[in-house]
Amino acid sequence: MEITRQRALLHNDADFARALARAAAGAIIFALPLMMTMEMWELGFYIDRFRLALFLALTVPLLFGLSYFSGFEETFSWQDDLTDALAAFAVGFIVSALMLGLLGIITPDQPFTQIVGKIALQSVPASIGAMLARKQLGQDDNPRQEQRQRSSYAGELFLMMAGALFVGFNVAPTEEMVLIAYKMTPWHTLALACLSVAMLHVFVYQLGFQGQENAGNLGFRSLFMQFTLAGYGIALLIGTYLLWTFERTVGLSAMEMVTVIVVLGFPCTLGAATARLIV
């Protein structure tokens, strides 16, 4: 009976309209900090076009994955997940365009590609927000279904990656990332890296990733290797990718680059650690 009702959501106009409204609210809530960040508007026109296009192209597979785990609709087939992902992208894009227009960031006299760049960059967090809206704003309809999907190891790593990307994205465009790196000594960096790993492990241990039954069987070492270190590796990779996309690493020495990656790795780790709560 439950499954029938959820299945019908994507196939019933009124229910889908309600889900869309919720998605739009989620897009605004999750993307508002970035819509009101100056660096995001500037990156919209000076960021390398290929890097922005690649970033945008990776968004739809990410949305697809998020839809599989917890979209703004319960989905059961890959066609439904794809519909879900594209609808979330549409909501994110439209909400970004409307909000940027309302805030006076984009105006009709700007060159077309500049407008597209600003909206496209903003639509990434907005469409992720639209996708997360169901989990955050709606009731948790079917926890059993989600748990089953999430209990695979690859699924856990994907969720960590999505969480790292989402939280990391919220600070990665700012100039403060590089500025903080300039202020830190190698000892600060080492301490921050240790704190990141420790924090991630506490979350992994507390939340019992992989479902209770398996987490109970894993010893400290294998839990640490399989989840904590893997999660920190993912966080650092996502951080590096974001810095590359936003061209924050140009001209930095190797030491400074490592420092700024560890700095951004901290919010990314936070995202990876709390992905289960957010996603």
């Binding site: 994507l10 196939h11 019933n12 106009d13 229910d15 889908f16 309209a17 869309l20 945008l56 739809v60 794809l82 519909t83 879900d84 992902a85 594209l86 609808a87 979330a88 992208f89 549409a90 909501v91 894009f93 439209i94 639509s123």
Partner: peptide
């Protein structure tokens, strides 16, 4: 739902 179709098609076009 036609709305779901329309939104996903719009999303595809925008993307």
């Amino acid at each position: 739902s036609w709305l779901a179709r329309a939104m996903s098609l719009l999303g595809l076009c925008l993307f």
